[in-house]
């Protein structure tokens, strides 16, 4: 910052030497310059303060959760079931349930999302079907998550008869993350210069070979980032699992995909709003929140590592 300012000052001296020594000309130009410089300084100060404010809020939330939740975290808290009306014990089933849901929804949304992203960017470029799919995808991502929950309940729980189960919840969460997966896939593919496709096709490669051997390896680091972000979103959602899978209290682990499970966000919701003793459970609530945040954070770290790994593999 400082050096930039210095340089600007220097250029000012330089340019003022070129201005003919008419008194008005010189003073006019330097005053307009200093007012320019002031407005610039003020603008950037405001921008700076705003971005600091965002960071401050984030630090505040994290600090609050960590300070409140840290004391309840223990090995038992992580590995035991809730006890005595969720006022004691751990949150193990909820952690496991959340992981199952994340895994299940990923299995559903990743292949479908990536394939439709590829279809839209590589095969159906510019045609009406692709435009239609794109509009629908955008609409889908604008739908409130509770509506997804309702839809999931109607379709997967009732019509398809899965009941409240991991599969119904996973499919619902999968639907929720689908637009994000499709969009990131499409955007990642779009970012790859067309000349790579031409280069491959010009060597007699088919479109599929081109996508599989040249384009996907290049787009993969960015796609991964999108996938992980969608996992982050899925693991924190409450509304879609409310009617499709989440159990109020279920101390045992699921044995099949048709079982109900507990999940961290829902568990947090339950013990803060409708537990047997909200006051006593408050500590557990903060602990649960901390674990949830930690999982999301962990997922993001893994995402970054994976992305770096794959982009290094591409560049080597």
């Amino acid at each position: 910052m400082k050096t930039t300012k210095k340089q600007e000052t220097n250029t000012n001296f330089g340019s003022s030497q070129f201005i003919p020594p008419v008194a008005g000309g010189v003073s006019g130009s330097s005053s307009s310059y200093s007012s320019k410089r002031w407005s610039q300084a003020i603008a950037f100060t405001i921008f700076k303060l705003m971005s600091y404010a965002v960071v401050a809020i984030l630090v505040l939330i994290l600090g609050f959760i960590v300070s409140k939740g840290f004391q309840v975290i223990s090995w038992d808290f992580l590995t035991k079931s809730p006890e005595e009306g969720m006022t004691k014990g751990g949150i193990y089933p909820a952690i496991v349930g959340t992981l199952y849901l994340v895994l299940g929804s990923s299995l559903f949304s990743f292949p479908i999302g990536i394939m439709s992203g590829i279809y839209m960017n590589e095969y159906a470029t510019g045609n009406k079907i692709a435009a239609f799919i794109r509009i629908m995808t955008n609409n889908l991502s604008a739908v409130p998550s509770v509506v997804f929950g309702l839809f999931g309940m109607a379709l997967f729980v009732n019509v398809m008869g899965f009941g409240d189960s991991i599969i119904a919840g996973s499919l619902t969460l999968g639907l929720l993350s689908l637009p994000l997966v499709i969009r990131t896939t499409e955007e990642s593919l779009k970012a790859i210069d067309f000349s790579y496709r031409e280069g491959s096709l010009a060597l007699g490669a088919t479109k599929l070979q081109t996508i599989w051997k040249v384009i996907m390896p290049m787009a993969f680091p960015n796609i991964i980032t999108g996938l992980i972000l969608s996992i982050g979103r899925v693991s924190g959602e409450t509304a879609p699992i409310l009617f499709t899978v989440a159990a109020y209290f279920l101390p045992k682990l699921p044995t099949s995909i048709f079982d109900q499970v507990m999940a961290l966000p829902y568990h947090l919701y339950v013990i803060t709003t409708s537990g047997t003793n909200i006051e006593i459970s408050r500590g557990i609530a903060y602990g649960t929140a901390l674990v949830l945040i930690f999982i999301v954070l962990l997922v993001n770290v893994i995402a970054t590592i994976l992305r770096d790994y794959f982009s290094r593999k591409v560049k080597m």
């Binding site: 210069d193 280069g199 491959s200 010009a202 080597m316």
Partner: peptide
Amino acid sequence: GMVFQKPNPFPKT
């Protein structure tokens, strides 16, 4: 065969 305006080697060895 064809060679393009911008060098476009693939992300391979």
